[in-house]
């Protein structure tokens, strides 16, 4: 069974981004970039399926500028088999990414697509569900547990109030939540080996997908700052403040 894992190159989660004063967006010059953390979890899950003898091949896909190649190499070093780089500069909206992925699914015919639940830059939380919608495939979002057989994937999902378990006929789309697994680090030998793994390049045009943005971002600005920092000296004082604010 072939598994497809889309991975996105994003600003590292440790970076506090700065908004450009002219309102045109976020300043990304010289900022550390990494694989979206949820996508590391997705890659890890695919590797575990392969180690369990359930997946035969793991193909990673990324849509982005030429540096995105590094992100694909990271996924290959973790244990994916080959990569597909869809070259695109500038931000590509989830709908366009989903369309690109749908085309690649058409070519590659994977049984399972494992996606991150959310990219930590745009915080959209859309792509996996959109891909499933375009393909009319079953979807299971926010997976905290997943088990796959020849014909089904059984997923436990994080929902409001607790957990829900669904069984999806393959082919299907699963989106990962934080508790699905803990991604491995690539070992040095595997990083070396990854350099020889193939990455195919293509473009949205070659795939016949229009990536012109649908939404217009007319302004980007900073949220109002909080003025915190006051310390209280005693528990009694804290209790009084708490009482004042809740009226208990």
């Amino acid at each position: 069974m072939k598994v497809l894992v889309p991975v996105k190159r994003v600003v590292d989660f440790n970076v506090k981004v700065r908004v450009r004063p002219d309102g045109s967006g976020v300043d990304l010059a010289n900022v550390k970039m990494s694989m979206n953390p949820f996508d590391e979890i997705a890659v890890e899950q695919a590797i575990r399926f392969k180690e369990q003898g359930k997946a035969s091949e793991i193909v990673v896909v990324s849509v982005g500028p030429k540096e995105t190649n590094e992100t694909l190499r990271t996924a290959l070093a973790m244990g994916a088999d080959r990569g597909i780089h869809v070259l695109a500069s500038g931000p590509v909206e989830p709908l366009a990414v989903a369309k690109i992925l749908a085309r690649i699914v058409g070519d590659e015919a994977p049984k399972l697509v494992i996606v991150g639940k959310q990219a930590i830059d745009d915080d959209c939380n859309q792509t996996g569900q959109m891909l499933a919608g375009l393909l009319r495939w079953p979807q299971a979002t926010f997976a905290s547990k997943a088990d796959v057989s020849e014909s089904t994937v059984t997923v436990t999902r994080e929902i409001d109030g607790g957990l829900q378990t669904l069984a999806l006929d393959l082919p299907a789309v699963v989106t990962c939540d934080l508790r699905l697994n803990e991604p491995r680090y690539a070992s040095l030998p595997n990083i070396m080996k990854a350099k020889k793994k193939p990455i195919a390049e293509t473009t949205p045009e070659a795939l016949g997908v229009d990536i012109a943005p649908r939404l217009k971002i007319s302004r980007t600005f900073e949220p109002p700052a909080r003025s915190g920092g006051r310390k209280v000296a005693s528990v009694a004082e804290l209790a009084q403040l708490v009482r004042d604010h809740v009226g208990v």
């Binding site: 981004v17 976020v26 830059d121 915080d123 971002i217 980007t220």
Partner: peptide, 9 residues
């Protein structure tokens, strides 16, 4: 966006 570090219109 970006964990609430920026707001988009």
């Amino acid at each position: 966006i970006y964990a609430g570090n920026a707001i988009q219109l």
